[in-house]
Amino acid sequence: MKRALLVLTAVLLSVGVAYAAEDVRNTKHNLSSTGSLSPYLTTTTDEVCVFCHTPHFASIAEAPLWNRTEPTGPYNMYSSATIDMTIAGSPQGVSLACLSCHDGTVAFDSLVNEPGSGLDTIGTWSWNNNGNIMTSSTSPSAMIGTDLTNDHPISITYDTTKDPQFRAPVNNRIAVNGTNVTLPLYGSNKDQVECGSCHNPHEKDVATFLRVANTGSQLCLACHIK
């Protein structure tokens, strides 16, 4: 039995760090009536994907079929004397999608197409006591706000020629050493670090929706040569 366990352990170690487990239904990102983990839950719909995605008339360019009202900011971007790469003046597509909830300016039910035939088919939604918009009191750590100066830079052009202390991407992705996880870059040149570079909003097992557990800070060290 012990031998079997050892073998199993070996297998788990070699493949257990494979693709993250995706099931957004069992995460805080399930805001529907079927969800239970999010502090914000509606009783109005049991659809899960709809809070972010729509098959038609997607809102935010680059973000995958985004169903949410595009936030307008304005945002204070991160800046630092120690940064050598270039940060865009405002969050770009993929990150803007995340901010359409996490900046606290757009209600969860402010959608392009509501469940059903689309558009504003529902009228007034019903939410639990935490309401229909992200607040720092309910979500002190998940609430990003429009002040991004205390958040890891996003919409930053990943250019290792400007700072040799970063690992070069391979095929526009950055491998997390010791795993088979790679971190994506975005934008038309596939060189932008966005929220999705680290986060997988569908991930169900890894805390804070990271693409891979940050044990030994392996996620940080994937990019940073530190």
Binding site: P140, T149, N150, C220
Partner: peptide, 18 residues
């Protein structure tokens, strides 16, 4: 976690350098 002793990607305080 290693980086966590100095850095955090969100809600950093002080913000720079996270």
């Amino acid at each position: 976690e290693i980086c966590i002793f100095c850095h955090v990607p969100h809600n950093a305080n002080p913000a720079v350098p996270l």
